[in-house]
Structure formats: C-alpha cells, structure tokens
C-alpha cells in the first residue's frame, strides 16, 4: 500500500485562546511553552499544543487527561483570562501515511506540502473543508476534519487511494 487512511480514536481536544501575558501563565499551567509561531507545535509527554493563530492553540491529550487540563486552567483563569473550549467531538482525526501520503493530500489541499515540515501543523483546506493538517513525519500526516465533513472527505480520499493503486 502506498498510502493508508485510518480514522483515529478520539482524544481530548481543546481550543485554547489566550494572549499577551496570559500565554506564559497558561503554558506554565500546562507544563510546556506554548509555541509562538503559527504552525509550530510543542509536546510534553502526550500533551501537544499546536499554534493555529496568533492567540489560538489546539491542545490534544489522552481522554483521561481532559478533566485535569480543564481544572488546571480554570484555576488560573482569574489572573490569566483565556478561553478553553472542549472540541473533542468537533473533529475526527484521519491518519494518512505512506510514501504517497503527500500525493494523496494533493488531490484536495492547495498548499505546498513540501513546505510543511515534519513536526508542524496548519489549518488549511482539503477540497472544500477546513481542516487542521499535521505532519507527524516525512510520510505521515494527520488531518482533523469537522465531523460532518467526514462523509465527504473520507470517500474522496478513498477515490484518491484507488487512483494511486491504479498506478497512473
């Protein structure tokens, strides 16, 4: 198989919004430094923070860490106001991996994927759906797709896989 597509199990996923001095405080509460540049990501154990906008990060963690993250950040809200919204069920994550992974994504993503280095992630488009595209490795991508778009996106990826399998 040149490329596989699989739906990943749910994780705890939050949209984190904070700015100015709050950024450092929230980072400290999470135990990592929130990356300052859009597209960069930071990890601490299985907690990951990806910067999507100037005051926006997506946090992912194991499901059993959800309540603790919420509680940790609630504890600092008064001195570091922020927004932490549970979006665990908003998106479904697809893992797209294999030598032809980037080619498969090129059927719908207008970005130059050569410029998305492993370890980075961005919000972009796949076909007409907004997605968060992570590059976990040279041949491994993860795509967070809003749930209702999956019935459109997934079969499109399958058509692309069949096309790649046909070898032309």
């Amino acid at each position: 198989m040149q490329v596989t597509v699989e739906e990943l199990a749910p994780v705890a996923r939050f949209s984190l919004r904070v700015r100015d001095k709050g950024v450092a405080a929230v980072g400290k509460a999470l135990g990592l430094t929130l990356p300052g540049r859009i597209g960069e990501r930071a990890d601490r154990g299985d907690l990951t923070a990806l910067c999507l906008g100037p005051d926006e990060w997506v946090l992912t963690a194991p499901e059993d860490a959800r309540d603790r993250i919420a509680a940790d950040l609630a504890a600092i809200y008064a001195r570091a106001p922020h927004s932490l919204t549970d979006i665990s069920d908003r998106e479904i994550s697809l893992r797209i991996a294999g030598p032809a992974a980037a080619t498969l994504l090129s059927i719908g993503c207008p970005r130059d994927l050569d410029r998305l280095e492993p370890g980075r992630g961005v919000r972009t488009l796949f076909d007409s759906a907004t997605v968060v595209l992570w590059r976990d490795g040279p041949e491994a991508f993860r795509m967070d797709v809003w749930r209702s778009f999956v019935p459109h996106v997934r079969p499109l990826l399958e058509i692309g896989q069949e096309e790649l399998a046909a070898g032309l």
Binding site: S15, R17, P81, D86, I87, D89, R90, E91, W146, S148
Partner: peptide, 12 residues
C-alpha cells in the same frame, strides 16, 4: 475586549 469565540456546532 477580552473575549474569544469558538465554534462548537460540530461538537454537539
């Protein structure tokens, strides 16, 4: 304004 907006349409 210190306020943030997050779409949760698809979360629920």
């Amino acid at each position: 304004l210190r306020v943030w907006l997050t779409s949760t349409t698809e979360h629920w």
